[in-house]
């Protein structure tokens, strides 16, 4: 196991219970720098709770969570704000603030940080950063629009822009492709790969689509236009499978495909 200081995220025997029922059950894993983890599992397997626990949005009932080597398990909400600045998160349906425009949504984390620490110059630079983040997801023309005026895929892309605008070293994606058609889903995955390759971020991608993991593990982004080019067998992509709160598989794509476990095989086949 790598030492705590180089780990980006470490779960140590974490259990989360809702109404006495464990939804994350004694889960341990380590996410190293530059690594991507694909978390597969059916609905209700505890994937979303896992992500929220990683950010301290949900407190574990047992076990410890370490973010960037710091034990965040017992931190107060105010102290967590500083830690969360280094993590971007895309929620399941995007969770954009629907009373704010796209521009205000993407600027939100930057303004928040500016209020906390940055100087006047940084506040002036926010507009540029917002535009750059939106251009990254190819939505530079939607600044004045409200989330309700966008399609599902576009909302997801704005969500990615908001999650990555502060250039955090760790990004958590909760079902980035859920409910999208295959073409849009692939566009979203291409963005995730581009984000990983350009900024060299670590990430956790929660999904129920095996193809999403396949894209992350076998393609890289071709710098300039963000096109995907084959790069089979990347070792920085690790698969995890969750079932009823338990982590039942952890390993590479090859190991996943060779797994004898019937539940794991169900995911690979589809």
């Amino acid at each position: 196991m790598a030492s705590a200081s180089t780990d980006v995220l470490r779960f140590d025997n974490v259990t989360v219970r809702f109404d006495e029922q464990p939804v994350v059950d004694r889960v341990s894993f380590v996410l190293g720098a530059g690594e991507s983890r694909i978390v597969l599992g059916e609905a209700g397997a505890g994937k979303t709770v896992l992500l929220k626990t990683a950010l301290g949005l949900i407190r574990p009932d047992a076990g410890r969570v370490y973010l960037f080597g710091r034990d965040i398990t017992d931190l107060k909400e105010k102290e967590l704000f500083a830690v969360r600045q280094q993590v971007g998160i895309l929620f399941q349906e995007g969770a954009l603030f629907d009373s704010q425009t796209v521009e205000e949504n993407v600027a939100y984390p930057l303004l928040n940080q500016a209020k906390r620490s940055l100087s006047r110059d940084d506040i002036d630079g926010i507009e540029n950063k917002v535009l750059r983040a939106l251009e990254f997801v190819e939505l530079g023309h939607t600044l004045e629009k409200f989330p309700s005026e966008l399609s599902g895929g576009m909302r997801r892309r704005v969500g990615i822009a908001r999650a990555t605008v502060t250039e955090p070293p760790l990004v958590l994606y909760d079902s980035p492709t859920a409910g999208l058609d295959p073409i849009t889903a692939n566009t979203i995955m291409a963005l995730l790969v581009k984000e990983r390759d350009i900024r060299n971020t670590s990430s956790i991608v929660v999904t129920h689509r095996y193809q999403d993991g396949q894209i992350m593990a076998n393609f890289r982004s071709d710098g300039a236009d963000g096109k995907l080019v084959p790069d089979p067998g990347r070792t920085d992509t690790v698969f995890m499978v969750m079932r009823e709160g338990r982590l039942i598989f952890e390993g590479s794509q090859k190991e996943l495909e060779a797994s004898p476990d019937a539940y794991v095989r169900k995911f690979v086949r589809r």
Partner: peptide, 11 residues
Amino acid sequence: TEQIDAMRALG
């Protein structure tokens, strides 16, 4: 719609 969680996540 998880906007409350998003707010907490964004500080």
